[in-house]
Amino acid sequence: MSERVVLHYFNGRGKMESIRWLLTVAEVEFDEMYLTNREQYEKLLSDGALLFQQVPMVEIDGMKLVQTKAILKYIADKYNLHGKDLKDRVMIDMYSEGLMDLMEMIMILPFSPDATAKLENIQSKAKERYLPVYEKALSGPIYLVGGKLSCADVQLLECTLMLEEKFPGILADFPNVKSFQGRMTQIPAIKRFLQPGSKRKPQPDETYVKTIKEVFKLNF
């Protein structure tokens, strides 16, 4: 029996949340080691566990993986969530990276001094640049690529839920995306993940922001 996957990150969403989502959909059990102080981070550095001195870091299959995109691709490949061939995979990667771009705008909001202006920019870009792409892609198929569930679908669900937290009703003009969201939330593993008490993290709060600033010695 293989060892359980271990996630090293903060007790919050950030870049690890997409990894939690994907492991959940793949039905992979995982443990979490939360960074709560500078000393823990320095210990990971001194142990050579952080290739680029950054988290997320995921222990899986005897490896210590860093860099979010690389981790997500490894999990997607391992659990058959990355398309059937190269053409499928490049489409999945394009959809995924677009979603990561959008979600990262939301992730940095708690650290931004002018969050209101940034919210307006995010809403505008979501409605004009990103959501139309996924609305078109879902005009017939039930999944984004190849008629099969992929990591891009998981990220699209995560992203739409994040958007609705900030902008209720944002999907009103995107019925295909809204229908897709409804279908995805009926997948048993996802339904469980959306219930209280799961390993899904809540929206960032002051404690989460304060911890990150202290661990990384950020002054802004």
Rank of each mutant, 00 (worst) to 15 (best):
A115F: 01
V90A: 06
R129P: 01
L65C: 14
T24R: 00
S179L: 14
V66L: 10
I92E: 02
I187P: 08
D88Y: 05
F111N: 07
I75C: 06
Q123F: 06
K166M: 11
D93Q: 01
E165H: 12
E165W: 01
D61M: 01
D173P: 03
K64P: 02
R89C: 02
S2R: 09
L157Q: 04
E29K: 10
R129F: 12
M107I: 07
P113A: 13
T68E: 09
Q181V: 09
D93L: 01
K148V: 03
R13E: 00
T211W: 09
L171K: 02
K148S: 14
M94L: 09
V5H: 01
K43L: 05
Y34N: 14
S124G: 10
F10G: 01
R129G: 03
K217W: 10
V177K: 00
I75E: 00
Q40N: 06
A117S: 15
P204I: 04
K84E: 14
Y134C: 05
I170N: 02
V133Y: 07
M91Q: 14
Q54G: 08
E17V: 03
L44C: 11
K136M: 08
M94A: 10
I71G: 03
M103S: 06
K118F: 06
K118R: 13
I142D: 12
I60G: 03
Y134E: 01
G197S: 13
Y79A: 05
Y130W: 06
K73N: 12
A126M: 08
T68M: 13
L72D: 07
H82N: 14
I187M: 13
L23K: 05
L22V: 06
Y79P: 01
V58M: 11
E214K: 15
D61N: 12
I170Q: 04
L50F: 11
P175Q: 02
K69S: 12
M162L: 06
L44H: 09
I19A: 02
D101L: 00
D153M: 04
L138F: 04
A152K: 00
V28S: 06
N176Y: 02
E214N: 15
D153A: 00
F180E: 00
S139Q: 13
G14V: 03
E135I: 05
E42A: 13
T211K: 15
R192N: 14
E32I: 02
Q123N: 12
Q53F: 07
P110H: 09
I190Y: 06
G182P: 06
L44M: 15
I122P: 04
S124E: 13
A137T: 04
G83F: 03
N219F: 14
G169A: 04
L171D: 03
P202G: 15
K199D: 14
M33F: 15
Q67S: 02
S124C: 11
G62W: 08
L81T: 08
V209I: 15
P188A: 12
E39C: 03
R183T: 01
L51N: 07
R192H: 09
N121F: 10
M103L: 05
T160K: 03
E214H: 15
A115E: 11
K64N: 15
H8E: 09
K199E: 13
F216I: 12
V28Y: 05
Y130K: 04
G14E: 04
F111V: 03
M33N: 11
V154N: 01
M91F: 04
S2I: 11
N121G: 07
T207F: 14
R38I: 05
F216G: 09
Q53V: 05
K199R: 12
A70V: 11
V66W: 03
L72T: 10
